[in-house]
Design a protein around this nucleic acid. Sequence first.
DNA 1: GCGACAG
DNA 2: ATCTTGTCGC
Length: 254
Amino acid sequence: MSAFPQEDLIKQWTSEQASLKQQLVEGDMEEWQRAPDFKGLERVGGVDLSFIKGDDTNACAQLVVLSFPELELIYEDTQMVTLSAPYIAGFLAFRETPCLLEALQRLQRTQPKLLPQVIFVDGNGLFHYREFGVACHLGVLSGLPCIGVAKNLLQVQGVTRSEEHMSQIGALKKGGDTFPLTAASGRVLGKALRSSDKSTKPIYVSVGHRISLDTAVRLTHACCRYRVPEPIRQADVRSREYLRTQFPSVDTCG
DNA sequence: GCGACAG
DNA sequence: ATCTTGTCGC
């Protein structure tokens, strides 16, 4: 077998990100994105992968489509997949995007009218080392509007978990409150959002594709029943439930 | 060399 | 990502 140093892989992936980035579209492109109440938006999607404890190559890939604004499940796709790429911070898309695109293609092929008008992705969009996170990657390759939502802060481009950052989190008083994630360049790459009155820890929202940051934040807030926006939360809950029933732990009492 | 490292 | 139950509080 030929050796393929991680160094080479990273070089290849870096140039691929730069190439795909040229197709990235920022800003609102649909009428519903401009509407105060998102009139015209009927379907929101969410994707996620879940793993079995000691196995990092086999995973359960999940795509859900919820009605908007009710946030009720109207479509679900659950599929066991074998991942070929390793997880490397900054290159999450190369690991997770292929199986998510396949899920979208199955939906496109069988029930195209149920395709989501926007997809919430677990991970960052523009808030990324090279401003091209997994939400941008999936957006460009699918052509669909995407929003990146990270549950943990990626310390990038000068944004750190500093006293200043902690202080800004403390200043988020109610659901919907935000503060910008500003790169050293001065560019706002995303926003920290207190997603509900009850949750203290913010989520980090950034543009994936074909949507503006303000619209992404506003819609994310509108989709939060709990800390994590419902489309992603449903995808997470359902993929884990699938693994729990299909692959029960082997080493637990009998 | 040290620390950071979405999922 | 996963490891993990009960517990404290509203």
